[in-house]
Amino acid sequence: MSDETTTGTKASPGGGEQRVVIVGAGMAGVQTAVALREQGWTGEIVLLGEETHQPYDRPPLSKAVLLGKADGSTLDVDFAGLGIGLRLGVRVTGLRADKRLVETGAGPVPYDILVIATGAEPIPLPGTEGVPGVHLLRTLDDAERLRPVLARQREIVVVGAGWIGAEFATAAREAGCAVTVVEAADRPLAGALPAEVAAPMTAWYEDCGARLVTGARVTSVDENGLLLADGTRLRAGAVVVGIGARPATDWLAGSDVELAGDRSVAADDRLRTSVPDVY
């Protein structure tokens, strides 16, 4: 943010102090709200979160929460004490920058300064919507739905040998599940790391007792498992999809906020977007 928006406040066009609205109550949104207060912002701060849970950290979901070693990973922030207006269960649907309004399922929310912190959303496997036993792992609710699956020691197929796939496979093996990991590329983490760095991960799957199948594309999924392009049938009591994530920016369609080719928000070196007072 510019200096005038990180220290103190300036007058709102409608009179009084300015209101900062932060869309997204994950780590980025929460830390932005806290930093504003720590750096002297005295105006109103509204933090909008789509989930109904108190803001939490995501990394523990793929191990501690899945295995029942923790019920959650709530961030230790006194929102009321800091004067941060936390609104949970609010789904943002659009942005009317000309009127400085964030559209939500609960009605419009006016802002003077807007911070976009909606992060990413998991990419679903095509053709799996509504198929019983198919799971994504991104939210606390996702982890809670998967916890009993691990407790029953089901046979599990993980689609995607990226970070989420590796984390989940570890937890599932620790829970005593039989795990097969299916990866379309010829090695784990192909999209994230060079081959020489990712190569040791192949042996890691074997060491943890998970079966790794590379160069395999999924053609269909049903409640009993999945079918690969080469005709191989893999039985599964559950299928966990971890094939990547994409920016959660659909709600910005038609808002004049410039998006990059990958649908992420284009911003300059001070995190300013193409729309005034939107960061």
Rank of each mutant, 00 (worst) to 15 (best):
V275C: 04
K99A: 14
T104F: 02
T52D: 14
V65E: 01
Y205A: 04
T74A: 14
R100A: 14
G94S: 09
G89M: 14
L125W: 04
E38D: 15
G244N: 07
P124S: 13
T273L: 11
A28S: 15
Q153N: 07
T42R: 11
V77A: 06
A266H: 13
D98T: 13
A260C: 10
A185Q: 07
D222W: 13
G162D: 02
I123G: 00
A267D: 09
M1V: 12
A198E: 05
D98Q: 10
Y56P: 05
R87G: 00
G176N: 04
L234I: 09
H135P: 03
A198G: 09
D98G: 12
G89K: 10
R246L: 10
T219Y: 00
Q153I: 03
T32F: 12
G72L: 00
V34C: 02
A175D: 02
A151T: 15
A11L: 13
D277M: 05
V102I: 13
W163R: 07
A35F: 05
L140A: 01
V240N: 02
D262A: 05
A64Q: 09
V20T: 15
G68Q: 03
D256E: 15
L271G: 10
H53I: 09
A184T: 14
V157K: 03
L259H: 05
D98S: 12
P60V: 11
P110D: 00
V241R: 00
R91G: 14
V197D: 05
L101M: 13
A216Y: 05
G24K: 10
D277P: 08
G107I: 12
L66V: 11
T5E: 15
V182S: 07
V158L: 13
A171L: 06
A253R: 14
P59F: 11
Q18T: 08
G85H: 12
A175F: 03
G176F: 01
I22V: 14
G107M: 07
E103N: 08
P55V: 12
A253M: 11
A210Y: 02
G130P: 00
P247T: 00
I156R: 06
E129P: 03
A171M: 00
P132T: 01
D3A: 13
A210T: 08
T52Q: 15
Y111H: 01
G8F: 12
G24M: 06
F79P: 08
Y111A: 06
S255D: 09
T104I: 00
D268A: 02
P247D: 01
A64Y: 04
L36Y: 15
V265F: 10
A161R: 02
L95P: 13
S73K: 04
V102E: 12
D256F: 03
G127A: 01
G24L: 08
P194V: 12
L67A: 00
G231P: 07
M201G: 10
L61F: 06
A184W: 08
